[in-house]
Write a protein that binds this DNA or RNA. Structure first.
Lengths: 353, 353
DNA sequence: CCATGTGGTGAGAGCGCTCCCACATCCGTG
DNA sequence: CACGGATGTGGGAGCGCTCTCACCACATGG
């Protein structure tokens, strides 16, 4: 007010961040040179570089991201889009793994992770605007449903995008990381058949998610290959409660079942509860195979036989893929498919063996 | 190249976002008026407002956050700081709840959530720089340890901050949301005593976290009030594996225990495994009380008696608190403490009753 | 000897936005 | 009819940064 009023900023209480100008003055160089020294240091003399480096430390300088963003058109952040705002769904270890993995991939970069959780319909339009508005450099989309047209919209938008899970609409050149869900379902069927179960049924995932559909198709094929009847199929929502509900339907319709494949561990838990609630024993009367290899269910009780997927690795890969797309938008990237593996535990033991 | 080269942006392929100038032109008003219409619309005639609104829709205009940020000194995003980058730790439903809750609190605001997961020591300095660099308008810090001096540093920095969990250092005026952990521990002790257990021990949480310390203090007091001996205390790390390890120590040192309080459900799971592995029965020989009311452990097996905390609600409150601090930095906010409640299930059944 | 680099530098423009201020209306009141 | 006070409007500066460009020293080649 009384003086120059445009002091280095130290007196502003709220945000004492020094500007590049201040940095340059402190280092005894021009703003341009300081800027160069910060960004890679090409065409900067060793002395100038050293002076700037020292000044950075002395002043505790951090570049103003907004200002940089304004001119570079890069924001230094990517979005993780999760169209499931529900705490119940978030409990799924899948999300913890995805978040951890993507974060891991970003380590070393100075990129930050912005979490975009949007209820479908509700504020998905808002999410799309945010994504298209250039507020992030790229997006990782996860757990999408058929009705979400992320693939189409983002694919045509030009925003670098990577999917975790095979998108419904292909041909938009959007790379993705996925598990071989088909093989996973097939493995479950073959395993149940191999342990002597003959009357099989499945609690599948939501019919509007490719992961669920693929697991189901694989399951059917596996059952067929084992020479067994294609049993009943009920769809659940991947949660424990949904699995229990589906299991009630399944077992009331087909009480003779002796092997059930649930397309998620959480649903498998629900199935086990219902089976036991009906007075039948697991695995003696009914064998159960889950999907995900949820760590909590590994050792708990008798242990759940399940199909395992390297979720964290998949997320790391997705993150790295996205960074590549951002840095080189022209490059066409192939999908990365991880193999599924069966982990045998107590829930399919005994019986014929 | 050939013409003005500064076209509205539609031809830039990458990011076709129209600028405020374009918007104003389309609406037939000045840049200033358009800006006013967008931000609250004070001192804007109804006609101008309508024209701008229409143009926004027509052009699909989204304000450039970077540019706005540059002048307003507001970024429109807040950080969620989680000093635990480990997938194993992330599995804890606590984080899912926190993320969901904070996100819920942000709904309606146009704030975005930036996830900052930093390994202590490793890149916590980087995290601090990011936070202090004015890249976010505020921060929610969660699951901090005594060695993390977030409270001190952020408290003096002036960055609006809210803690989830009581911070170690008080007196920095940093508001927080917490559970009455002391009462939770006390409830666990009194319940075990009430069901006739007399030889009690506990697997406490990390000694460098206030939640763990408070639970332990409450537990000790509860044991004392019941007229029992203060039993052995072993510290775990809140994970299942950590709980199992602690339980081995606990039980090898004190094989006579008939009641154990684990400071987290995940640890309780580890304790149960070890107890059973040692040939003893839960709850007949040893009763177990957990903490968190993890949904997976509610119905699974016999059901875990536990202390419940409204994690999502707490996170929502933290988010709302933060928004208040951001909007009114002067206001002094009181901590919000939620009550703890005991949920009795199978793991403490039978015995004396 | 001048032409042509080549590494290092600084001035200046401008990214898209908000906010201050000057100005132009249109009131109601003395 | 003159005047202060609303009410609405547009021009302009400037937020902190990057990037182009002109420039200066030298070195190198003919």
């Amino acid at each position: 007010m009384n003086e120059k009023s445009r002091r280095p900023g130290l007196l502003q209480a709220g945000r004492p961040s020094p500007t590049l100008e201040d940095l340059a003055t402190a280092a005894g160089v021009s703003r341009s040179t300081a800027s160069r020294a910060i960004n890679g240091g090409l065409k900067v003399s060793p002395e100038a570089q050293a002076a700037v480096d020292a000044a950075i430390v002395a002043l505790g300088y951090t570049p103003n991201r907004a200002a940089r963003s304004l001119v570079t058109r890069r924001t230094g952040s990517i979005a993780l889009v999760i169209p499931e705002p529900d705490a119940r769904v978030m409990m799924d270890p899948f999300f913890a793994a995805v978040i951890t993995g993507v974060n891991e991939a970003l380590r070393g970069t100075d990129m930050q992770l912005v979490l975009l959780m949007s209820r479908a319909g509700d504020d998905s339009a808002r999410t799309m605007r945010y994504l298209r508005g250039g507020h992030v450099d790229g997006a990782i989309v996860v757990s999408f449903h058929e009705a979400d047209d992320w693939a189409e919209t983002l694919g045509t938008t030009g925003l670098p995008t990577v999917f975790i899970g095979r998108p419904w609409a292909m041909g938009f050149g959007v790379p993705y990381v996925d598990l071989d869900n088909f093989e996973g379902g097939r493995l479950a069927a073959r395993h149940l058949a191999a342990t002597g179960r003959t009357r099989l049924g499945t609690v599948a995932g939501p019919a509007d998610m490719t992961a669920a559909v693929d697991r189901l198709e694989g399951w059917k094929q596996g059952v067929r290959e084992a020479g067994l009847q294609p049993g009943p199929v009920i769809h659940g929502d991947f949660t424990t409660a949904g699995g229990a509900e589906a299991a009630r339907d399944l077992l009331s319709g087909s009480p003779e079942l002796d092997g059930v494949f649930a397309a998620s561990d959480l649903m498998a838990l629900g199935v086990i509860d219902v089976v036991r609630g009906g007075g039948r024993k697991v695995p003696e009367d009914v064998a159960i195979v889950g999907f995900d290899n949820h760590s909590l269910l590994a050792a708990n009780g008798m242990g759940l036989t399940t199909v395992t997927q390297p979720m964290v690795d998949m997320a790391v890969t997705a993150g790295k893929l996205l960074i590549r797309v951002i840095e080189n938008p022209e490059e066409q990237l192939e999908p990365v498919i991880y193999p599924a593996e069966l982990v045998v535990r107590g829930s399919t033991a005994g019986h014929g063996d």
